[in-house]
Computed example of a mutant assay.
Amino acid sequence: MAERPTTNWSEGIAQEAAELAAGTLDPDCACMSELFPDGLLLETDAALDTFEAELPTLTEGDDAQTFAIVERVILALNAVNEAHDESAFETDEREQLCAYIDEALTEQGIDVAALTARHGIGRYALTDRWRDW
């Protein structure tokens, strides 16, 4: 399964904590736990849990179903972003989340490039219709 961005973010928090404990990182330079508070990670994982649970129901060629699942995860992530003062997902996080969605769909057998081409959008615009972050 595609690696969730939240896994990467959690690993960054743990690495930063280890560096702080070892004295190899200036506390003024530590920011990971502020950028990714527990609530943000839990809420993001909940949205991704639902998305992953729906993936096995997808069938190649059922574009409406695929778009519906993408819409639901994006709307759930929009709600997470709103709950965190519209600043939960910056550029890096946006790119990681969109790449994760693309990878997860691809692993499920969805040809994302063909799907988006059939609808006249670029592959990397898959989430744009619904995404507020």
Results as ranks from 00 to 15, higher is better:
Leu55Arg: 06
Arg118Lys: 13
Ala21Tyr: 06
Thr57Asn: 05
Gly39Asp: 13
Glu71Pro: 14
Ala79Cys: 06
Leu75Ile: 14
Ile13Lys: 00
Ala79Thr: 04
Leu41Gly: 01
Val70Gln: 04
Ala125Glu: 15
Asn78Phe: 06
Glu93Asn: 07
Arg129Lys: 02
Leu41Thr: 03
Thr50Cys: 15
Glu54Thr: 14
Ala46Arg: 00
Thr66Asp: 11
Gly23Thr: 11
Asp49Thr: 07
Ala117Cys: 13
Leu115His: 07
Asp63Gln: 03
Leu105Met: 04
Gly39Arg: 06
Gly12Tyr: 02
Asp85Ser: 11
Ser10Asp: 11
Asp85Arg: 10
Thr91Trp: 11
Glu19Asn: 13
Asp63Leu: 03
Ala117Asp: 05
Glu71Lys: 01
Asp38Met: 11
Leu115Ala: 04
Leu55Ser: 08
Leu35Arg: 00
Thr66Gln: 09
Leu25Ala: 05
Phe67His: 10
Gly23Ile: 07
Leu20Asp: 00
Arg131Asn: 06
Ala104Met: 08
Ile110Val: 11
Gly122Arg: 01
Arg131Met: 02
Leu75Met: 06
Trp133Cys: 04
Met32His: 15
Ile13Val: 14
His119Gly: 10
Gln108Leu: 02
Gly39Ser: 08
Ala117Arg: 08
Thr59Tyr: 07
Ala117Phe: 13
Asp85Ala: 13
Glu82Phe: 14
Ala30Gly: 07
Thr7Val: 15
Asp62Thr: 06
Asp28Ile: 01
Thr127Ser: 10
Leu55Glu: 07
Glu107His: 03
Thr127Trp: 02
Gln65Ser: 12
Glu103Lys: 09
Thr91Leu: 12
Asn78Glu: 02
Ile74Gly: 06
Glu16Tyr: 01
Ile69Pro: 03
Ala30Lys: 00
Cys29Ser: 10
Asp62His: 05
Glu60Phe: 08
Leu41Val: 10
Trp9Gly: 05
Asp85Leu: 14
Ile74His: 02
Ala46Gln: 00
Glu16Cys: 05
Ala99Trp: 07
Val112Gln: 15
Met32Cys: 04
Glu82Cys: 09
Ala113Phe: 05
His119Ser: 12
Leu97Ala: 12
Phe36Arg: 15
Asp45Cys: 14
Met32Arg: 15
Asp132Cys: 09
Ser10Phe: 04
Arg4Asp: 05
Trp133Glu: 04
Ile69Gly: 05
Trp130Cys: 07
Arg131Glu: 07
Arg118Pro: 08
Thr116Arg: 00
Arg131Ala: 03
Ala2Cys: 09
Thr127Gly: 05
Asp111Trp: 10
Tyr100Ala: 08
Arg4Trp: 04
Ala17Val: 06
Ala113Asn: 05
Ile69Cys: 05
Pro37Gln: 14
Val70Cys: 03
Thr127Asp: 03
Phe51Asp: 00
Ala64Asp: 15
Ser10Asn: 15
Val80Phe: 02
Asp45Leu: 15
Cys31Phe: 10
Leu77Phe: 06
Gly61Ala: 01
Ala46His: 00
Tyr124Leu: 14
Ala46Lys: 00
Ile69Phe: 01
Ile69Trp: 00
Asp26Lys: 02
Glu43Cys: 13
Glu86Tyr: 09
Glu86Leu: 09
Ala64Tyr: 12
Ala125Arg: 10
Phe89Gly: 03
Leu126Val: 02
